[in-house]
Design a protein around this nucleic acid. Structure first.
Length: 258
DNA sequence: ATGCCGTGGAAACCACGA
């Protein structure tokens, strides 16, 4: 079974790219971020015609997350990250699919830092870490996938020295990710490729993709039952080179059937 | 060192992204 995460940067503007990628790579479960569409404008029919069931949590203009499953039932568990009733951003959705517990997340960017947006990011990270502690202990496999807006180490940035003051790479942000992972989670891509340069995002400008000036910010965290089933992982980097593409590439893991 | 590009929504510019 293949599980993917993809920050589409606008699900409607990106629909041709998304449908082509779904057809070519045929992932079984997909986490989408940055829908940039309200619930009523989610392209449910086009995605159903491609063979996918879907649940989504949209919002006008910004954010928005969804979980897709190819020919499988999706049982929604929640669509809010607990811990802040005032948080109106659509950044989290959670479901059970084929016995796997999936959390799909779009962690706040946090720039400019310092400032209120950075404070919001760190708070959101704390809430995620509290929620994740419960998920980690579950008996069944759990996947926390999405755009974490964190480069965990210097290996995950094309020029680390240029990013040290950025909200995606500041010490507080990296510490927050480290604290989360230290609950016992497996960073799936890093486990399989401990020393490789792997990027999941390339800026639209300055020919970032052509220069491979990228960042690794889309991650899969696995609890132990899921980690035991991990067999492969990768980035569909070529998708980043398509016409009218997102600035992120799809990331995926392959897991053994139960 | 920097939104240089891109998206969505409102209103022919602005917010936001990483």
């Amino acid at each position: 079974m293949r599980i993917a995460t993809y920050n589409v940067n606008g699900v409607n503007g990106r629909l041709p790219v998304l449908l082509r990628w779904l057809e070519e790579s045929a992932p079984d479960i997909v986490c989408l971020q940055e829908l940039k569409a309200p619930n009523e404008k989610f392209p449910e029919k086009a995605i159903a015609d491609a063979g996918y069931n879907a649940i989504w949590h949209g919002q006008k203009s910004w954010n928005g997350v969804a979980i897709l499953a190819r020919g499988m039932q999706i049982d929604e568990v929640g669509r809010v990250l607990p811990g802040d009733d005032e948080d109106t951003h659509s950044r989290y959705i959670e479901a059970m699919v084929s016995g796997i517990h999936i959390g799909c997340l779009y962690l706040p960017n946090g720039n400019p830092a310092p400032g209120p947006k950075f404070d919001y990011k760190l708070k959101w990270f704390e809430r995620l870490t509290i929620h994740a502690a419960g998920l980690f202990k579950e008996k069944h496999p759990v996947v926390l996938a999405g755009d974490y807006n964190v480069m965990p180490t210097e290996l995950d940035v094309y020029k680390p020295e240029r990013w040290v003051d950025d909200a995606l790479f500041r010490p507080e942000t990296r510490d927050a990710f480290k604290t989360l992972v230290s609950q016992g989670w497996t960073d799936a891509l890093r486990k399989l490729y401990p020393n490789e340069t792997i990027y999941t995002f390339w800026d639209y400008f300055r020919n970032a993709y052509q220069r491979n000036a990228g960042l690794r910010i889309d991650h899969f965290l696995l609890n132990k039952p899921m980690d035991k089933r991990l067999v492969a992982a990768g980035v569909d980097k070529d998708v980043r080179g398509w016409e009218k593409t997102s600035d992120h590439a799809p990331v995926w893991i392959e897991v053994k059937d139960a």
